[in-house]
Design a protein around this nucleic acid. Structure first.
Lengths: 343, 343
DNA sequence: TTGTAAGCGTTATCAA
DNA sequence: TTGATAACGCTTACAA
């Protein structure tokens, strides 16, 4: 079933059929009704390959997700999906491993799919610096700040990772903790981790609390198992630790398991703060203190920025998403505890 | 950059270029080398719209995922993604809400994308009975048994939900529990829930343990919040409950939170068994007993079945995936406990 | 308001 | 082994 068949069946020419199907003007009501009726009866759908070929573009948005096991990305994709569901764009999601180059991948897929824009979930500045140059499509980088890259077609929506991490450390310090470990990603491969790391260091310095990265910063993959392994190493060498900040909730939960397996209680012996604000935080035992990233806001903003660039030719913008520190049962108030101990 | 340009640049004709790019025979080594060199240098990619238009099909597999917040599906999609990553197919993932009709959606998308096959994650027999008739593509239904539907182009890979649920209940009974609640999906909308429900009833009957569905079966959405709400209702009306089986790990974790918020301990007061075998089970506190679904096996089998149907014209097959009951800290051995109490 | 026809980038057939 | 060309289904000028 093609528009030719529709034309034959309706007695109109293909041009008219096409105009009707695309809601264009200059078509008589009669033609519109007749043609639509037949189309509906036959369950006719335009062939998007032919359409895209002709128009030299498709109606799709390409989302390249780097890091398959990242629960936060899953959340974001879900939001994106439901936001685009009714709209003008079709979302094509592609997942790649953390080790791969997301920009090169996007470039290749873009040649093939001719999407209208690209969304990057996760990614590293380095790859953008190296390869983004010849990507001409409007793009949005999520969970990474793209401001200093200076590409005119690359917007970004990201949490202020530096400030957010500093807030997490500040919170632990305010609760009386001084012996604090940090679990995060590799500082070479991950901008996000680097920014959060910088925020941690800043918070420690500001409060005059000593922090020896060589001993107290443990690199891990963003997964339960990664958090588990990192915590195990921390507990072995740093016996006097009273708190740990993990750069993702999944790592924090892995860390909690490791602590318990090592005979430490949460938060009795070790207080724990995560990052992301996944739904599980409120259901974990104890409820997990975390830095909430506003996924709904981020998803909406992304789409808006991208749409502005595509439809209105807007320039690149860089938006910081609000974050929120969520105190919870996984953190013990040491000040209070010491006071009670004195009594 | 099109193959015409490539032809001009290389001095060969488009036909030759096309043959080279598609690894076809009857091309001289020299032509192959020359053309590939230029293509690589220019970063040339075939336009898949034109290709698909011409070939009347694409190289994609369509995966329609029904139930956006289902963590198990996320797991399965990840597996699928990594399995297809290097291969001949491109995976296009589409997420729809639990309320939507997955078959109708697939039919529409199929017209547009011309995929080679369709994967359904989640779905209900009813929709298949109503709408699958005019879907001609090889398809695989996952997490739902499709055997009795009798479509020649619809395979299925599924856990034996009935037996698996019976095993979960049997386990609780073996541990001495007699007052057992069940949390699961709507029996009208979800085949999976219905099968698991039937397995529960069967296990109760076999063991001679009374079970009043009206009071002890609570319908919930497959989410933390759904489990929480269902558990809250259960605890209010059924004070003497000692154990609960939830038809997903997420619901089980929601239920655990509800129990604790109601002042009950896990597993001291309430034992808990989940379903799916998500990674979180081993990290939750206490570790969550569950019925493990073998996601890797399921993902691999699916692809194999689909590939057999596409490439070798194989008929529909219905495979039951192995499941495994994983006992864990969230279940209290009441027999043992009673014995200890006596001493 | 409608019809006609060119052309999008590719594959595949047939002739050379 | 290579080249020329029709065709895939659609959009869009342009003509009627």
């Amino acid at each position: 079933m093609t528009i030719k068949d529709l034309a034959a069946r309706s007695g109109y020419a293909v041009g008219t059929v096409s105009r009707v199907l695309n809601n264009q003007p200059n078509v008589s009501e009669k033609a519109r009704r007749t043609i639509l009726a037949i189309a509906r009866a036959e369950g006719f759908e335009l062939n998007s390959n032919a359409k895209n070929l002709k128009q030299q573009r498709s109606n799709s948005l390409l989302a390249v997700v780097r890091g398959v096991y990242n629960q936060l990305f899953a959340d974001l994709v879900e939001h994106l999906q439901s936001l685009t569901a009714g709209g003008d764009y079709r979302l094509v999601v592609d997942y790649i491993d953390e080790g791969e180059n997301e920009v090169r991948r996007a470039r290749q897929l873009a040649r093939e799919l001719k999407p209208q824009g690209i969304l990057f979930l996760g990614g590293s500045s380095e790859n953008f610096r190296d390869c983004f140059g010849d990507v001409a499509l409007p793009s949005v980088l999520v969970t990474n700040y793209g401001g200093e890259l200076g590409f005119p077609n690359l917007s970004s929506v990201t949490t202020d990772d530096r400030a957010a991490a500093a807030a997490a450390i500040g919170y632990l310090i305010a609760q009386g903790h001084r012996q604090i470990g940090v679990i995060g990603g590799s500082l070479e491969n991950s901008d996000t981790s680097s920014l959060r790391y910088a925020g941690c260091v800043e918070a420690f310095q500001r409060a005059g609390v000593p922090f020896d990265p060589a001993r107290r910063y443990q690199v891990a993959r963003y997964s339960y198992a990664g958090g588990y392994a990192a915590m195990t190493r921390l507990l072995e060498s740093e016996r006097e630790l009273t708190a740990v900040f993990a750069m993702s909730d999944t790592m924090a939960i892995g860390a909690a398991r490791a602590a318990r397996d090592a005979g430490r209680s949460i938060p009795g012996d070790i207080s724990l703060v995560g990052f992301d604000g996944l739904p599980i935080c409120g259901y974990y035992q104890p409820r997990l203190a975390t830095v909430i990233q506003r996924t709904t806001f981020m998803a909406e903003t992304r789409l808006r920025l991208l749409d502005d660039m595509i439809r209105r030719g807007a320039g690149a913008r860089h938006v910081l998403a609000p974050y929120e520190l969520a105190p919870n049962g996984s953190v013990l108030d040491l000040g209070k505890k010491n006071e009670e101990d004195r009594l």
